[in-house]
Simulated scan of single mutants.
Amino acid sequence: MTNWLRRLRDAFAPAPRIEDSDWHALLRRSALFERLPDGDRTALRTLCERFLARKTFSAAGGHELVAADCLAIAALACLPVLHLGFEHLAGWREVIVYPGEFRVRREHHDERSGVVTEGDDDLIGEAWERGPLILSWADVATDLAHPFDGFNVVAHEIAHKLDALDGAMNGTPRLPPTIARSEWIGAMQPAYDALARAVQRGRDTAIDPYAAESVDEYFAVVSELHFSDPVLLAREAPAVADLLRRFYAAPAPATSVAGLRSDR
């Protein structure tokens, strides 16, 4: 069977059903899911079934993955696209899970001096534009146990995936018709600039100062807050909070054959 025929078959094949006992165990595992309206829980379950059917999970660094943990990661990854649609998770297919922080080697280019340096970074999550979603299970587990403390590593990395859908990680994801690009930038850029100035001046900020690293990190951090501490976000950046409420609640477009095939 040719690759395109296999992708088409997989796209239309029904995803394996999540057993009721497994789904209810997930809902009991974290108040993040338990508090969802019934309709959203049903939609999330359907998205999780597609995620588990179309993404592959790999353990790294000696970690041991179990089915319940894969389901939890799937639910956290699908929550941001609950209303946007599954096609917003297109373009990648692997989830790699480490037991805790993992180390990556990076190159840093100083634009002023032209000097390139190498160094190691310890990360809890990473999302490549068309590569895997990489996660620290210790941090995922903490987010499940304490879902409203302002942190959600999976939501953060999925925000990066959404940001990359239009071909560039620049803090502006593919927007629904109800939000103009000028409106998005008009709310996000001033909020990012204000946070960056505060961090540069050494001020304590309620929003994680890591958000001041770049506009794409700002979008990822405020997306975390949207799901884990929306009250803090509304207090610190009301225009951004309102924009994200509209973005993450945007209705999914009509499903197309191309959209179904693209998540392979």
Rank of each mutant, 00 (worst) to 15 (best):
F151D: 01
Y192H: 13
E224P: 07
A198E: 15
M188E: 04
D216N: 05
D122N: 03
A72P: 02
V240E: 03
D122H: 05
C70W: 03
S182D: 12
V140R: 08
I134Q: 06
V221R: 05
Y248A: 08
V81D: 03
Y192Q: 03
K55W: 14
K55R: 15
P230Y: 10
N3S: 12
A250V: 01
R130G: 11
A258P: 00
G61P: 14
F86Q: 07
C48R: 06
A234W: 00
D120F: 01
R235E: 08
A68Q: 15
F12K: 07
R197F: 08
A141Y: 09
P99Y: 13
A258R: 14
E64C: 02
A60N: 09
D229C: 09
I18S: 12
A220H: 02
W137P: 05
R181P: 00
D69R: 08
D193V: 11
L89C: 09
A59N: 14
P251D: 06
A180K: 10
Y210K: 04
K161Y: 03
V81R: 05
D122S: 10
F33S: 09
E236P: 01
T172G: 00
I18E: 10
L89P: 11
L79P: 01
A11W: 08
E49P: 05
S256D: 07
D69P: 03
D139L: 02
V116W: 12
E213W: 02
R174T: 04
G150Y: 12
P176Y: 05
D204Q: 15
R54V: 00
P16F: 12
A77W: 01
R17P: 04
D242P: 00
G186S: 08
R6I: 03
H88Y: 14
Y192C: 02
D216M: 05
E126A: 13
D143G: 14
V215Q: 14
A196Q: 14
R106D: 07
M188N: 06
R246V: 01
T42L: 15
P14I: 10
A75W: 12
H156I: 08
L32N: 03
D166N: 13
L89Q: 11
R54K: 14
L225H: 06
A254H: 11
